[in-house]
Nucleic acid binder design. Structure first.
Length: 598
RNA sequence: GGCCCCGUGGUGUAGCGGACUAACAUGCCACCCUGUCACGGUGGAGAUCAGGGGUUCAAAUCCCCUCGGGGUCGCCA
């Protein structure tokens, strides 16, 4: 090794030791006589003092050093003179008195600060990702990610799981997300596809008797990106045989509780993880991935205003819709402009509009003193004091609060209020950043009617097991069939999902038929699964968790790009390599591909 | 594909019709400086204001188009 110690590890116990360090120049302070270099490596920073009276030669070398030069320094670890210790550095009690120094490689002036944590345009960071990754924030992200994956592997190993790799070149299945395709050289006109997830493979591993499988699996989906979505991403994929739903949910709960305690002990995990039904979360939070770090629940007000002379409310109820609301605490003094923004948000969700009801000013106080003079609302003249009081009471409001009420079709009302709840939660900073509020969402419908295609579609995927008692409904009322699927959510993100799977060919075939596949299609696309299920497939189930999103939440970052070493842009470009790129005519010819004019 | 936001020295920002010959901070270069640690001091270089077109006596500033980036809806079984 070119070094005997790492910069970050040196403490006063090392005083007197002769050490050799190698790393990058984080900062240089030239005092004319004395030169100080903050030397940085992966583990941290230590100050090196170049004194011409100690070593004329190395002082000369230090004179040429600049930011991000790669240098090697030998010298003695010394206690810093009294009064010059730096409490901001873990190594701040000591410094290296340089005796020898060499520049291993100079550096151009970096295009952005490596030694300061300032915002830099993201495409510049991505182009020079190798410099960006030197910055402390990114280094911490990468280390955290490593610790998370390491912990998961150790945990699952201790619980009897074995890690098995599955192919990256596999078969295209037109259902689900758009596939990334790989042309075959040996089979003209045929293509492999990159896996969207190892779903079928892990089920076959259960048929194979592996009983407990997991994989840190790369998955590929050719769909548009988001802050929490990339074309390729990493899942913790796992599957178990002979399990019931709670076996998996409890195991994952144990995993996360111990994981957070190990890698982020300063974060609080709310336990036990609540199990909520899909219908319930839509009703109470307006989304299937609620942020449960704060309340502000959506309440049904339909019965209160069914007979109201405010026709928008009364008519919504009369035509089978709902009137629901949330309470924004302390927002009674919101300006017209602020209220209009919220109205706009509600409309963008498809709502006809938003009715806001300000309860007095921000003076606070109980509802007893509420009179219509203190109510500010476009609907004020149509509402009675009792109606407003009742609504306020149900929403657990007090004077000074703002009621946000939406009327219309239940689905739209929930969606709009869900968005408003999220928005108000963010504005009022109701979500504690160091808290992780996990929950399981269960009892999804198995099928959803696809208007466009005019047929039933799987809510998740066709291998999900229905409730036993609902199986007859597949023939009579598919929309009522409940599934054995569960999602794991945390702080408003869906971080994973799984299910118990169908393990008999008979039931699997029945589901495929409902989804509109002809028998020969079923054979062509899923024959391998159906046949496998005829050779003693055990009951099984599993879950897949988004590693990128989990690390993002643990790192407190806004996008998964912050926890991926080389992420892609929104338009799926890799700016470090400039991928995708054209290929030569020869390469195309070998793959039997001819480009067509667009 | 729709909608929204952003693009000004290397970096991050200010300027939002005339006082802009474009400001500030930092970085960079030179010189000075032996206890700094975001060292300090003096001086200097560095910007066709993303690109194109238009309105105007006058455009970084207003309008249109294009490009690039981000957010989001659709999409993500």
């Amino acid at each position: 090794m070119l070094k005997t110690h790492s910069c970050g590890e040196l403490r006063k116990e090392h005083v007197g030791k002769k050490v050799t360090l190698a790393g990058w120049v984080d900062r240089r302070r030239d005092h004319g006589g004395l030169i100080f270099i903050d030397l940085r490596d992966r583990e941290g920073i230590v100050q090196v003092a170049f004194n011409p009276e100690v070593s004329e030669a190395s002082h000369k070398v230090a004179d040429r050093m600049r930011s991000e030069y790669v240098v090697r320094v030998s010298g003695e670890v010394a206690r810093r003179p009294r009064g010059t210790e730096n409490p901001k550095l873990p190594t701040g009690e000591v410094e290296i008195i340089a005796q020898e120094a060499e520049i291993l490689n100079p550096s151009k002036t970096p295009p952005f600060y490596v030694n300061e944590d300032v915002e830099v345009e993201e495409n510049l960071r991505l182009k020079y990702r190798y410099l960006d990754l030197r910055r402390p924030r990114m280094r911490e992200s990468m280390m955290l990610r490593h610790q998370v994956v390491k912990f998961i592997r150790d945990f699952l190993d201790a619980n009897g799981f074995i890690e098995i790799e599955t192919p990256i070149l596999i078969k295209s299945t037109p259902e689900g997300a758009r596939d990334y395709l790989v042309p075959s050289r040996l089979h003209p006109g045929k293509f492999y596809a990159l896996p969207q997830s190892p779903q079928q493979l892990k089920q076959l591993l259960m048929v194979a008797g592996m009983e407990k499988y997991y994989q840190i699996a790369r998955c590929f989906r050719d769909e548009d990106t988001r802050a929490d979505r990339q074309p390729e991403f990493t899942q913790l994929d796992l599957e178990m045989s002979f399990v019931e739903e709670e076996d998996i949910l409890c195991l994952m709960e144990e995993l996360f509780v111990s994981l957070v305690a190990a890698v982020k002990p300063q974060m609080r995990v709310l336990t036990p993880f609540p199990r909520l039904s899909y219908a319930e979360v839509l009703d109470r939070y307006g989304t299937d991935k609620p942020d449960l770090r704060f309340g502000m629940e959506i309440k049904d007000l339909s019965d209160i205003v069914a007979k109201s002379s405010f026709s928008i409310f009364a008519e919504a109820v009369a035509s089978g819709g709902k009137v629901k609301g949330i309470c924004a605490p302390g927002c009674a003094d919101y300006t017209r402009r602020q209220l209009e923004e919220l109205n706009e948000l509600a409309r963008s969700c498809g709502a006809g509009g938003l009715v806001t009801i300000s309860l007095g000013d921000s003076a606070g106080g109980g509802l007893d003193g509420l009179s219509m003079e203190k109510v500010r609302s476009a609907a004020a003249k149509f509402l009675t004091t009792d109606e407003v009081k009742e609504m306020a009471r149900r929403l657990e409001a007090k004077m000074g609060d703002l009621l946000l009420v939406v009327a219309g079709e239940a689905k739209v009302v929930n969606l709009a209020l869900g968005e408003l709840r999220q928005e108000m939660g963010a504005r009022l900073k109701l979500a504690e950043p160091n808290t992780l509020a996990f929950a399981y969402i269960k009892n999804f419908p198995l099928f959803r009617w696809d208007e466009e295609a005019g047929r039933w579609d799987s809510e998740h995927h066709p291998f999900t097991k229905p409730w036993d008692e609902d199986i007859p409904l597949i023939d009579t009322d598919p929309g009522k069939v409940r599934s054995k699927h569960y999602d794991m959510v945390c702080n408003g993100y869906e971080i994973g999902g799984g299910s118990l799977r169908i393990h008999t060919a008979e039931l699997q075939r029945k589901v495929f038929r409902l989804l509109g596949y002809r028998d020969e299609e079923i054979e062509e696309r899923f024959g391998h699964m159906l046949e496998a299920f005829e050779y003693g497939a055990p009951p099984h189930g599993g879950i897949a968790l988004g590693i990128d999103r989990i690390v993002m939440l643990l790192a407190g970052r806004e996008t998964i790009r912050e926890v991926i070493a080389f992420p892609k842009t929104q338009s799926a470009l890799d700016l470090t390599f400039n991928a995708p790129s054209p290929v030569s005519e020869a390469q195309l010819a070998e793959l039997h591909i001819e480009l067509r004019e667009e």
